[in-house]
């Protein structure tokens, strides 16, 4: 048993789960399958790095400002682009495509920002790798534990609890649930559905940004890191069923574990399997959809 692998898989699964929760939240609330998620993750990743390079200190300090900025991106996306389309009852495909356009715009601007630091300040920013700067917290039987191994799972759990409390205990959260479950009825009862959607996109953006921000301490990346991981985030949220945020989190965890731990153990028997590691979660996604078209959560609901 490799403790290093286990720790790493837990960390990775937590980071994925946070991002999957974002996709699920946005899909349940506004019917938008958010393609812009990819660049939102990349922005979270790079903002953290840029703040860290500018102001120094611990990279973890910049998780908050980075994710809030990405949250504001989400709000802008909703207000400028999606609101009109959602009101005119555009199809899911139209909504998906328009977020793809948003994704390209975000991606273009991110790269311009990167080039700005690259040309003018000669930062080595095209590929970012600050993993070795992550502080060492201790050693368990030979396996070093770095801060991200602790921070990422704790953040994921904190988010799960916070969302649970928010949705079930606060009046704003209840209003949100109401407008997710039945927007027409919610509007009749006087809930401002539009405001709720703005809030959903803010939270969705924050979660995507947070997921990207945590990746900064976990792995090397470049401007398309979000794009590379996007399919895994999609896989996680769809395996989780796209209907409950808890499902999204669980789907993310499942995908993360299967990609890392499963490939590791399979590699004992099938050499070279690790090259195909991305195919495993995707195959899971396809299988899930074909067997249970509503995802795992659908399966749970039905029982």
């Amino acid at each position: 048993m490799s403790i290093v692998m286990l720790l790493s898989a837990i960390t990775y699964a937590s980071i994925l789960a946070i991002g999957c929760a974002s996709i699920t939240l946005l899909y349940t609330s506004t019917r938008v399958f958010n393609f812009a998620h990819a660049s939102m993750v990349s922005w979270g990743f790079y903002l953290t790095f840029i703040f860290y390079n500018l102001f120094g200190g611990s990279p973890y300090t910049y998780m908050v400002p980075a994710s809030i900025i990405v949250g504001l991106f989400g709000v802008l996306t909703y207000l400028l682009v999606l609101r009109k389309l959602i009101r005119s009852k555009a199809s899911e495909i139209t909504l998906m495509m328009v977020t793809l356009g948003v994704d390209f715009v975000f991606f273009g601007f991110l790269n311009i920002l990167i080039d700005y630091f690259w040309y003018n300040y000669k930062w080595s920013i095209k590929t970012v790798n600050i993993v070795p700067r992550d502080p060492l917290l201790g050693v368990i039987s030979g396996a070093p534990i770095t801060a991200v191994n602790v921070v990422a799972p704790l953040t994921a759990i904190a988010i799960l609890m916070a969302l649970h409390v928010f949705l079930s205990r606060t009046s704003l959260g209840m209003a949100m649930r109401a407008s997710i479950e039945n927007p027409v009825l919610a509007a009749i009862t006087g809930i401002n559905v539009d405001k709720i959607y703005v809030l959903a996109w803010f939270i969705g953006g924050v979660l995507a940004g947070l997921s990207g921000s945590l990746l900064t301490m976990y792995t090397q990346g470049y401007s398309a890191i979000g794009l590379d991981y996007a399919v895994l985030y999609f896989a996680g949220s769809i395996v989780g069923g796209l209907y409950s945020i808890l499902g999204g989190l669980l789907g993310g965890v499942l995908v993360g574990f299967s990609e890392r731990l499963l490939t590791y153990y399979l590699s004992f028997y099938i050499s070279g399997i690790y090259a195909f590691r991305f195919a495993i979660p995707l195959a899971m996604l396809i299988a899930t959809l074909i067997i249970y078209p509503k995802g795992l959560a659908g399966l749970v609901e039905r029982r």
Binding site: V4, M5, Y274
Partner: peptide, 20 residues
């Protein structure tokens, strides 16, 4: 037989665990 990795890979956890 060693470990052959994908040239576009940036994550080497499984590979290095196997190497170890």
């Amino acid at each position: 037989t060693g470990i052959r990795y994908d040239p576009t890979a940036t994550v080497f956890e499984t590979e290095v665990a196997t190497l170890a």
